[in-house]
């Protein structure tokens, strides 16, 4: 029944691999940048807070596809030569998803009482050391369910790299569909794969949410 899928399985799975790679880079970069963006959003220094706030609010109001296009157009201009879709997509995703992760981390940071941070400072720890050993680790643990949920969203978003021709999972399925016209099988298959991965992810997030609620230590 699903012959079009089995017949092209390695090609399609290759696309899933590209999707996974893109998601990996997008997530690592997005989370790391998000940690910094969150810190900037609670900063008292206006010269840090305002630019980052504008950046966050700007990017959260425009479609991701547009951001993907924008970087695809801008990067050749900046580096002086044409660019592959993969690196361009990675940059777009990191910059875009960092705004969402940034807001999650910001919420996490705000759960940490000022005096906890003061306690660290009063032992001679600097701002950055405090952020690294106290603020960020605590926020990370507290926001883990939201971080997982957002990671699932990012994973789904990678499919939009389709528009700059990246040979990821969805694009490969549509290429096969052009040849074999077995749309139900192919897109059904893509849907099922995404469903399984994202569903498992949301269960994991739910698990940590329950764990966190019961423990309620951190």
């Amino acid at each position: 029944m699903f012959d079009a899928v089995w017949g092209n399985l390695s090609y399609l799975m290759g696309g899933l691999w590209v999707t996974a790679k893109l998601a990996f880079f997008a997530l690592t970069g997005g989370i790391f940048l998000g940690i910094l963006v969150g810190l900037a959003r609670i900063s008292k220094r206006k010269w840090i807070y305002y630019p980052i706030t504008i950046y966050v609010n700007f990017l959260r109001n425009i479609p991701l596809i547009l951001v993907i296009f924008w970087f695809y157009f801008v990067m050749p201009i900046i580096i002086g030569r044409s660019i592959d879709p993969f690196p361009s997509a990675v940059v777009s995703f990191i910059v875009f998803e960092a705004t969402y992760f940034g807001e999650i981390f910001r919420a996490g940071y705000q759960t940490i009482s000022t005096d906890l941070v003061n306690a660290s400072y009063s032992t001679g720890m600097t701002y950055f050391k405090t952020a690294r050993y106290i603020t960020v680790p605590i926020a990370f643990r507290r926001m883990l369910p939201s971080l997982i949920t957002q990671s699932i969203v990012t994973f789904q978003d990678t499919s939009l790299a389709f528009v700059i021709g990246l040979p990821e999972f969805v694009r490969r399925a549509s290429i096969v569909d052009n040849l074999e016209v077995a749309s139900i099988q192919l897109f059904g298959f893509v849907g099922i794969v995404f469903f399984i991965i994202c569903f498992i992810g949301s269960r994991i997030s739910r698990h940590y949410e329950e764990k966190g609620r019961k423990a309620n230590i951190l």
């Binding site: 906890l116 003061n118 306690a119 009063s122």
Partner: peptide
Amino acid sequence: YKLREKIGMVFQRFELYPH
């Protein structure tokens, strides 16, 4: 920071690092 190495402070709500 150097100053704070010299002066220790204990807070009303203990403020131990929970993790």
